[in-house]
Design a protein around this nucleic acid. Structure first.
Lengths: 157, 157
DNA sequence: ACCATGAGTTTCATAAAGAAACCTACTCAT
DNA sequence: ATGAGTAGGTTTCTTTATGAAACTCATGGT
């Protein structure tokens, strides 16, 4: 990333962003989830520069989100496939889509959705309390101070 | 953002990233959710440069994620409070945290969590099928091709 | 009078991103 | 056999963003 990475942030959120937090990366994952696999495929989906795309794909492969697979050899050609680990970013993508749908200050696009394989029903994310099993709105959820402020911060005013 | 924004991407994911996709922004939201409100508060939580923090906070206020509220006037001082809209980013943060916990290639930090106000139970996100109500793993979910390849972009180049 | 606090802004060096051109191996039509 | 086309990249160069440090401003405390 940059000189200052999120690494020193002992936090799972920062760790995830270290992998997918760079510009374009989550849109690449979005398109990969939608079935795009090839270099030129991503190029036509996204207004990204080829050198940057190259860099992002390499990074995603290194982090195990995508894998580079040869799909022909007479000129050797490769494609990028989502790994299981990559597919598990689905909730992140759905949560981003849900927020965008709700708060589209700009012309709200068509609802972006995912569907249940087989069943065909629309899938969405929700927050659930492990204890009472209730489905919760954001107003009923608070972050535990725990991982919050990264450094062992003193009392503070 | 940059010269090339995500704007032409008619997609709710891209729209969300237009608001929170810049470097540091999601970590600022993370800390805001954890109760940080002041300029210097964010500075002590995050290894971010002050000019960049200033820029991000301004952007988040413009997008209605935070609001700038005066909390004293004898030297006028302001703090940044999450709006309802900002609090609704909780599922995004939780989804990022969940992935980071699961795939922490690096020393897995303590589980980052949120709790149910009142009940005190741990809250997590899950994907649910609207039709059959089942809770689904990523392997059972596919993105509908719909929003996939964004622009009706002609061949180009 | 002097130092500290909180919230910024300014200035400057450095690292990313964007654009465009170039490269490599092939395949196919002429 | 020549030339065009395709797929997947690199290289080079220019513009933006980021990071670090210094500086501002209004006030309060000692």
């Amino acid at each position: 990333m940059l000189r200052r990475t999120y690494d020193d942030q002992v936090c799972s959120i920062a760790r995830t962003l270290e992998v997918v937090g760079e510009r374009w990366t989550l849109l690449i994952v979005r398109d990969a989830l939608a079935g795009v696999t090839r270099f030129d495929g991503f190029l036509t989906c996204l207004p990204i520069a080829r050198n940057v795309l190259s860099d992002r794909l390499t990074g995603l492969v290194e982090h195990g989100v995508l894998e580079r697979v040869q799909y022909q050899d007479r000129p050797p050609r490769h494609e990028y496939r989502l790994t299981a680990r990559g597919r598990e970013l689905t909730p992140v993508i759905l949560a981003l889509a849900a927020w965008g749908n709700r708060h589209g200050s700009t012309p709200t696009g068509p609802t972006d959705v995912a569907e249940h394989v087989g069943c065909g029903g629309t899938v969405h994310t929700q927050m659930v309390c492990e204890c009472c099993e209730e489905q919760l709105p954001a107003s009923k959820v608070v972050r535990r101070p725990a991982g919050a402020a990264t450094p062992p911060r003193p009392a503070e005013r």
